[in-house]
Amino acid sequence: MSGSVALYARRLAHVPGALRLLRLHPDGLPIARVADELGVPEAQLREELEVFFLADVVDTGSVGLRSCALEFLAPGPDGWLAESDLVDAQVLRLTDDSPFDELGVAFLSASDLGVLYRAASELSALEPDNDVLASAVARLGTSVLGGVEGRGGFMADVAADLRGAATRQLRVRLTYARAWRPGVVERVVEPWRVVSTRRGYEVDAGPLDADGGLRTYLVSGIRAHEVLEESFERPADADDRIAAARREVPVRLVVPADRVWVVERFAESVAVEQSDTDGVQVVAGVLPPVRDRVGLLLAVAGGGAFVVDPPYLRDTDRETARRLLDHHGLG
């Protein structure tokens, strides 16, 4: 995405300056003079304005709505300025003295637009039937980002299938490489919800465990899947159960300074409390299964990483090591 964002910045580099300049001239300015003031060839400024104008149009079926109060003008038969196409325009004029308020944002930065584009692409992958969203993603990619394809994230097609199964309340057979324990398993699950997280796409699914908890599967761990013609009933308290399953447990850890990224990889949130030559003390918000996640975190972080609080998690690294050794026949 970084290359696409840089391309966006280049393609709209002089538009903010043009808008600021036009604010000072309510009667408008010749395009040639605007280009001269900005130190850019007129042809390049016209190209940037065209990209900006196209990106700012919202399709609503038969009606096109333009949110930016920018006019393209040219002398008419009577000599007076009249609205025209950008190709024939000679003058630019704002119809409002606060164009950035009119836009609704203080002109999105390249990084902000990149984040927006990625989020919209991933949401579109989870909602394949949302034609309005797909059209918006396509317009953003072709007009501003220079032809980027909004294909969604890794394994978006699998996530879309699971999302469809959740909507229709159909069971799915999974071949799944477990994230927190070794081995590949096959399960028939009841998908309740599919979400996009910092780890990629995830599916919260039943049936419930013996203790009443639900399972969360990383879509990246799915080796094969089949949507079955077997329906299930989504519990009335499904949303409450999902919220409970995604409630963060605070865990205080010390890790080497060059291993803080490991905590960020396995935790939902990270807050640094103190840092010195002996390591960095952080409070990590960890989701269930907490013991498995913390054990794997410590195993990856290596020597010098340990749990400070709560005490019952201090042996999770040894537990994870024993489990891995047993799985590979090395115990």
Rank of each mutant, 00 (worst) to 15 (best):
G303A: 14
C68D: 05
S84T: 12
L214K: 09
W80P: 04
E229I: 04
L140D: 08
S143W: 03
M1Y: 06
Y176C: 08
D36Y: 04
D209S: 13
E186D: 14
G164E: 14
D88M: 09
S143C: 06
G153Q: 12
V307E: 15
G329K: 10
V251Y: 05
A89H: 03
L208T: 11
R322S: 12
V144W: 00
E202S: 01
L49W: 00
V249N: 08
V58W: 02
E229Y: 01
D211F: 01
E127C: 11
T95N: 10
L228N: 12
E268A: 11
D326Q: 13
Q281K: 10
S220K: 07
D27A: 11
D278P: 02
V251K: 05
S98I: 02
S220P: 13
A243F: 01
G3Y: 01
A110R: 03
E127K: 06
G153L: 10
L86K: 09
L22R: 11
A18H: 05
D27V: 05
V148I: 08
V300P: 03
L174T: 11
G213M: 09
R178Y: 00
T316C: 12
D276M: 07
R93Y: 05
F232V: 12
E229S: 09
R318M: 12
R163L: 03
R323L: 15
N130S: 01
F232W: 11
R33G: 08
E50Q: 12
R247D: 10
G295L: 10
D309N: 08
E127M: 12
L330T: 08
D101Y: 02
P75K: 02
L116W: 00
R322L: 14
L324V: 14
